[in-house]
Simulated assay, not measured.
Amino acid sequence: MLSGPPVTTTVSAEQLLERFLAANPRQRRTLLAQVQQRAAELRPLLPEQIDRLDATCDDWAAGLLIQLLVSVDDGLTQAFRDRYRDGWLAVTSAAGLDYAPLQRALIDQDFEEADRLTSEHLRQLAGEAAVKRGYVYYSEVPPIASVDLESLDRLWVVYSQGRFGFSVQIRLLRSLNGRWDQLWPRLGWKQGGVWTRYPRSFTWSLEAPEGHLPLVNQLRGVRLMDALLSHPGLQQRVSA
């Protein structure tokens, strides 16, 4: 008996979405390209699905689906923005800061603006003196409320496919046994305290190395970044 050509089975958009959300992190990475390629099919399914997801989580799958949804300027996108004016992810601030502009920038993948806002928030969290001088002293980091650093980190993780965030930088540093000199090349940063915000000095996209963003001022050495990544609130996120 002659056999015919192999039958190619393509899962439906509904099945692909279900499979993506049910997958573990490693499996999601393998499905990522397929999900992005079929964004046009998936978009009509996303508003209802996003409403059902846990907005208190830090699951980057949710952030990816939101970014796919808003990738086209149409009624679906406008309805989402109207429904979630402050952003979908539930974040809080002990200092009373408004993280909505940061969340909107991350949703739109405007990582340069998001990085600028994150630096501004860190100065606000460090206190009035840090705001006035324009940068944070390492000694001003320990008193910062854990919930605020957790909120900043969750925003970056969720809207970067898990590639950016302070917790990502902590994991990388741990994998290098605390070797700061080895961390800079991994992050795509210049070693030796060179730090600038000129756009061409950094990669403001998901093409950047893992942990590339957010930036931390290194003009005064590693003390500030060490204090930040050593903060109990962020350490707990990595250990959880």
Rank of each mutant, 00 (worst) to 15 (best):
S3R: 09
G4T: 06
G4D: 14
V7M: 14
Q15D: 13
L16Q: 09
P25K: 11
R26C: 07
Q27W: 01
L31K: 05
A40Y: 12
A40P: 04
P44D: 14
L45E: 08
D51V: 05
A55K: 13
C57N: 13
C57P: 00
G63S: 04
L64H: 12
L64Y: 04
V70A: 05
V72S: 04
D74F: 02
R85P: 01
S93F: 03
L97N: 14
L97V: 03
Y99M: 10
A100S: 15
L102G: 12
D108V: 03
D108G: 09
F111T: 00
E112R: 15
E113D: 05
E113Y: 11
R116P: 00
H121K: 12
L125G: 03
A126Q: 06
R133A: 09
Y135W: 15
Y135R: 10
Y137F: 09
P142H: 09
E150A: 13
E150V: 14
L155D: 03
L155M: 08
V157Q: 09
V157Y: 04
V158T: 11
Q161C: 12
G162Q: 03
S167D: 04
S167A: 08
G178Q: 06
R179Y: 05
P185N: 10
G192C: 10
W195K: 08
W195F: 15
R197T: 06
R200C: 07
R200I: 01
R200W: 11
T203Y: 08
W204V: 04
W204K: 02
W204Y: 03
L206P: 00
E207H: 05
N217L: 09
Q218S: 14
Q218R: 15
L219M: 11
V222Q: 12
R223P: 01
L234F: 05
V238F: 01
